[in-house]
């Protein structure tokens, strides 16, 4: 469990101070895969570096597994850090050491005996899929393989928390996926709490269950990924969500769209079960309305399907209202929108 209570961080350099974090409240529960997203300079790295006290808060407290890191002595803090693994965007492996020795380092620091180290390292390398690379140097590995070594190293001391600062930002999309899957597996198999920093919404979508959106040193929105993806409130969040879930009419459809009197546009949201049922079909059969589907999209988040639709309904007011009630009763989110809403949105 990680908890940040009213945390401020101000960097002062040559008399110029820079408020990187301004009153952060954050709680990461055990077993979460918690994503933090934000644009460059939002303070994401500063935030994650507070969790293992690479950076000390100017004000406020950081709790890890219930302990205030600020109350620890230097020695206690070092011990606490062994319980928090970290992986980095540029891997930060020792180039002078073989893969085996890189992974072994945290155990060497813990003064474990040779046999124990050997056993654990080989087991970890196997787990991350590098069973045959123990004798290689990092320079002989691909980016994805290097990150796997980084992950094995971070897990060596059996931490209960894994921090990932842009761990996939230097990797191609396919390698990113495989690394994210590995993180997911670590979370599931070892019940390790994972905190991920990223600027890519797809990373959040792929593995996180909770997300916090940061802007200018503040958390502007946080919650379950399904919640935030389904109903982004802040414009910045909406921009991020847009990068993975389209929810707008394409320009060509918009141009040819006729707005007859009595017709109205609606945004529909179908979550989970109702996304796989023939609800629109039933609506057409039961009510005398003309349905024009202008946009439809299904996304999977947290093993839950999130469907987004934009439809145009045309018909008698009572029929339309009945049809809308039918949708709502079946768990579909309905929101009436005006055509001009879509005019300036890019798709």
């Amino acid at each position: 469990m990680i908890e940040l209570k009213d945390v401020y961080k101000t960097y002062t350099r040559k008399g110029i101070s820079n408020e990187a974090l301004k009153g952060i409240q954050l709680k990461v529960e055990k077993g979460d895969i918690f994503g933090v997203i934000g644009y460059s300079g939002a303070g994401k790295s500063t935030l994650i570096r507070l969790v293992n006290y690479l950076e000390r808060p100017t004000k406020g407290q950081v709790f890890v597994e219930g302990h205030d890191l600020g109350a620890y002595s230097v020695k206690e803090l070092r011990a606490a850090k062994k319980n928090i693994g970290m992986i980095f965007q540029h891997f930060n492996l020792l180039e002078s050491k073989k893969v085996f020795d890189n992974v072994a380092i945290p155990l060497v620091l813990l003064k474990k005996n040779k046999n124990e180290i050997r056993e654990r390292v080989l087991e970890l390398l196997k787990f991350v899929g590098l069973g045959d690379k123990a004798g290689s140097y990092p320079s002989e590995l691909s980016g994805g393989q290097k990150q796997r070594v980084g992950i094995a190293r971070a897990l060596a001391s059996n931490p209960s928390i894994l921090l990932c600062d842009e761990a996939t930002s230097a990797l191609d999309p396919q390698t990113t996926r495989s690394i994210l899957q590995l993180l997911k597996q670590i979370n599931a198999e070892y019940n390790i709490t994972v905190m991920i920093i990223t600027h890519e919404m797809s990373v959040i979508q792929e593995i996180c269950n909770k997300v916090a959106v940061m802007e200018e040193g503040r958390i502007i929105e946080q919650g379950s990924v399904l919640e935030v993806f389904g109903h982004p409130k802040h414009p910045t969040t909406q921009n991020f969500v847009k990068t993975v879930i389209q929810n707008s009419i394409t320009n060509s459809v918009l141009k040819s769209l006729k707005t007859e009197p009595g017709s109205q546009l609606y945004k529909l949201e179908l979550v989970g079960q109702c996304a796989s049922e023939p609800i629109i079909y039933q609506m057409i059969r039961s009510y005398d309305v003309k349905v024009n589907i202008l946009f439809a999209n299904m996304t999977e988040i947290q093993e839950t399907t999130l469907g987004k639709m934009i439809i145009q309904l045309n018909g008698e007011a009572t029929e339309v209202n009945n049809a809308l009630s039918f949708l709502k009763n079946n768990g579909v989110g309905v929101e009436g929108v005006e055509k001009h809403v879509f005019n300036y949105s890019y798709s």
């Binding site: 970290m86 930060n92 492996l93 060497v108 620091l109």
Partner: peptide
């Protein structure tokens, strides 16, 4: 970055020198 990794691992200053910096 390597020194940062060392610090994140909770290495003592001596360990940072011996196991990270010098190698």
């Amino acid at each position: 970055g390597i020194l940062e990794a060392a610090e994140a691992m909770g290495a003592t200053p001596f360990q940072v020198i011996w196991y990270f910096l010098l190698p």
